[in-house]
Nucleic acid binder design. Structure first.
Length: 467
RNA sequence: GCCGCCAUCGUCUAGUGGCCUAGGAUAUCUGGUUCUCAUCCAGAAGACCGCGAGUUCAAAUCUCGCUGGCGGCACCA
């Protein structure tokens, strides 16, 4: 049985786009293999905890359609799915480790640790704990009377730890480079390293698919698995999404919160489609495909280990492709949902044929169609060289619009063409004046159709004030 | 500094020893369609396959070294 998971920590405003990527792959791998996808909240860092973060992460995940089979708030066979509610479990396993001699109590103060680290760094040695409390009788004898202590992993010297990674192949570390990692902090909370192993084991996670930044802590986890005599999961470390300068994708250089993309009018399916193209490509080189198709052809082993740059320009193109593909009714509801009550369903439906191939994000609908519901303020002088010519043109237009009985785009176009001809103006010049008069903008949907939708009366009023 | 991962057009990638004088997509530029902007169509430019050795009749593809980029090195995850 395939069981995958993401384990976000609620220390940010929202789900990070990199986590969304990890979630997508985990979700896809589980679904592809008829398994389960689990969300576990790793809230063991009490200091960095952000209020509301967990709810936001869960709701964003839902917005993208990556619904977990088990998660906080959903009763599952391995609840609770929030680590802060599982403290007793970790403690018990940590103490087991101590009994087995794989871990030990440590009473060292922060000051001593800091000093030690500084000293080792000055000597250009690896900054790691010196096992002062291991076998130090003064420490061990008094354990029951001590209040503050941590439990550390006892890493043996100079052994090679090798594990297989589905994406990277075999990776080997030497234990000399691994610190005696803290397992239980002095506040009684476990560290990530202990909690992740215990929970993945208890929750029967079969595949640990996470970001590449975890590679160097994997040997620590391997050590715990081996000490516990637990079966290890399959590991796969996904490439890290990059900023254009190739550093790890960060909020200083890129929008990283997944919901930001939604707010900007990107469509969840398009974002997921784009994300699936990070480090992976469709066997037939397709760029656009449904999530169902992705599930069919996707395989973990085909993911490349190279860190790809997250390119918003290409995402935008893909999003535009999705928008163009929609049936009018579907797109109507997307736009309606996006803007709430701002635009009527009726107006949206009428304008979609005009803008469907022009907008690349839902948000851009506003730029094209705002003038339908709001009269423009026009600075004639700023837009045209000759305000006099503009004014006389408006007068001509006004007279001719009055005469139109059959208010249809085709008819409007016909009449306006004639006006342009009579005024001896170039079409481009004439229509630009009309365009600005009607919309206040130089870039708009097709004019005749827009005028039809706007209605004769409204058009007349907009022209009149300028003539 | 130490450890690890990675290395093909600006970007995402195809390529697993001969089909490669390296293919696609995007971005860019040019032209066509057009009342604007898009769409669409046609075309251009863009990668000495990071560098250097080696293996081989043959290497983008295998091996080694170098360089570079990235990640990790906390009582954070």
């Amino acid at each position: 049985m395939v069981r995958t998971r993401i384990a976000p920590s609620p220390t940010g405003d929202d789900l990070h786009i990199g986590n969304l990527y990890t979630a997508l792959i985990n979700w896809a791998y589980a679904k592809k293999n008829k398994g389960q996808f689990i969300v576990r909240i790793e809230d063991t860092d009490r200091e960095r905890l952000v209020k509301g973060s967990e709810e936001k992460i869960l709701s964003t995940l839902k917005d993208f359609g990556l619904t977990p089979d088990e998660s906080p708030g959903v009763i599952g066979p391995y609840s609770p799915y929030r680590q802060s509610e599982r403290l007793e479990i970790y403690k018990k396993y940590a103490e087991d480790l101590v009994k087995k001699g794989v871990a030990y109590y440590c009473y060292c103060s922060k000051e001593r640790l800091d000093k030690l680290r500084q000293k080792l760094q000055a000597e250009k040695k690896i900054p790691k704990y010196d096992k002062y409390c291991l076998g130090h009788e003064a420490c061990n004898m008094k354990h029951e009377t001590r209040e503050k202590y941590v439990i550390r992993l006892n890493v043996k010297e100079n052994i090679n730890i090798t594990f297989h990674d589905e994406i990277h192949g075999d990776i080997t570390f030497n234990s000399n480079d691994i610190d005696d990692q803290v397992l239980i902090k002095s506040d009684g909370f476990p560290t990530y390293h202990l909690a992740v192993v215990v929970d993945d084991y208890l929750m029967k996670i079969s595949h640990v698919i996470r970001a590449e930044e975890w590679i160097s802590s994997t040997p620590k986890h391997i050590l715990i698995y081996e000490a516990m005599e637990w079966k290890k999961p399959v590991f796969a470390h996904l490439p890290i999404l990059r900023n254009p300068d190739r550093s790890k994708l960060s909020k200083r250089k890129n929008p990283v919160w997944a919901s930001w993309y939604l707010k900007e009018g990107f469509i969840p399916e398009a974002v997921l489609n784009y994300l699936s193209l990070m480090g992976w490509s469709h066997p037939e080189q397709k760029e656009i495909f449904s999530i169902e198709e992705f599930l069919e052809v996707f395989d973990l082993k085909d993911i490349q280990a190279v860190g790809p740059v997250f390119d918003v320009a290409k995402l935008k193109w893909l999003n535009g492709e999705y928008i163009r593909k929609y049936k009018i009714q579907n797109l109507k509801f997307k736009i309606k949902d996006f803007f709430g009550d701002k635009y009527s369903e009726n107006l949206i439906e009428k304008t979609i044929p005009l803008i469907q191939e022009r907008i690349k994000t839902l948000k851009e609908y506003d730029e094209y169609c705002g003038f339908f519901i709001e009269r423009p303020n026009i600075d004639v002088g700023a837009n045209f060289n000759s305000p006099e010519q503009f004014k006389t043109t408006m007068q001509r237009i006004n007279e001719n619009i009055e005469k139109i009985q059959d208010w249809k785009a085709e008819k409007i176009g016909e009449v306006m063409q004639n006006v342009a001809k009579d005024a001896e103006m170039k079409n481009s010049e004439f229509f630009m004046m009309l365009r600005v008069a009607i919309s206040g903008k130089k870039i708009t949907p097709p004019l005749n159709e827009s005028m039809e939708i706007l209605g004769k009366q409204e058009c007349l009023e907009r022209i009149k004030v300028l003539s």
